[in-house]
């Protein structure tokens, strides 16, 4: 555990909680892509199946349970409790265009051809692109609530911090996992455009709105 890894995890946790609180407090999931949230629930489910097979640490186990639990709670709020506020007309990204190629890739490029390992690989690849329905929705509506941008910022920064964690681990522990690194780079790149808008607009007190 190093400082980048820990702050990355905390940033990830902050993102998840910001989103849950935003929906809960406003009693609305307007502007949130339910499809991205379903993909994240799928990511956590397929990645953390090792909860059933191995114990790494109390930290590891509790964070996994919190991530999975919050992911399903978010999906429940969007598709059940506050379904009336869900903006399905703007959430039109075709997720099969992500899930099918990512599934195929997980079968072809993995560390070990075993069910758990393929599912873990699938989750890594899927996470890297799972935010696309959300970014697509924002590009369609041309705007995002400020609280939603805070969520996206924390979620994007988390994987960027993991990149520094992997550099650290490579130098000090000789550890590297090419699948996670490549997917992590892709994931971070997808946020770059958003980071630019966040820094130049939201941090200066303006609402995030895209030119028509």
């Amino acid at each position: 555990m190093n400082v980048f890894r820990l702050t990355g995890d905390l940033s990830h946790l902050a993102a998840i909680i910001i989103l849950l609180l935003k929906i809960w407090k406003s009693r609305s999931c307007a502007g949130i892509s339910g499809k991205s949230q379903i993909l994240f629930a799928l990511v956590f489910t397929t990645r953390y199946l090792d909860l059933l097979t191995s114990f790494i640490s109390l930290y590891n186990t509790s964070m996994k349970i919190i991530y999975v639990g919050c992911a399903y709670a978010t999906v429940y709020l969007i598709y059940a409790k506050f379904r009336a506020t869900y903006d399905g007309n703007h959430d039109t990204f075709r997720v099969e265009f992500l899930v099918v190629p990512v599934g195929g890739l997980a079968f072809l490029v993995n560390h070990d051809f075993s069910p758990l390992e393929i599912l873990w690989t699938f989750s890594i690849y899927l996470e890297s692109v799972a935010i696309l329905p959300q970014l697509f929705m924002i590009s369609k509506t041309g705007e995002a609530e400020t609280i939603t941008t805070h969520y996206l910022f924390c979620l994007g920064v988390y994987r960027a911090l993991y990149l520094f964690n992997w550099i650290w681990r490579f130098y000090f522990e000789g550890f590297f996992d090419m699948i996670a690194i490549v997917a992590g780079v892709v994931q971070t790149i997808l946020y770059c455009d958003f980071f630019y808008l966040y820094i130049t607009k939201v941090l200066k007190g303006k609402k995030l709105s895209l030119p028509a």
Binding site: D9, I56, M63, H111, D112, N165, F175
Partner: peptide
């Protein structure tokens, strides 16, 4: 043989 990476990360 098992060449999987330990999954200590989240």
């Amino acid at each position: 043989e098992d060449d999987t990476v330990p999954k200590d990360e989240l």
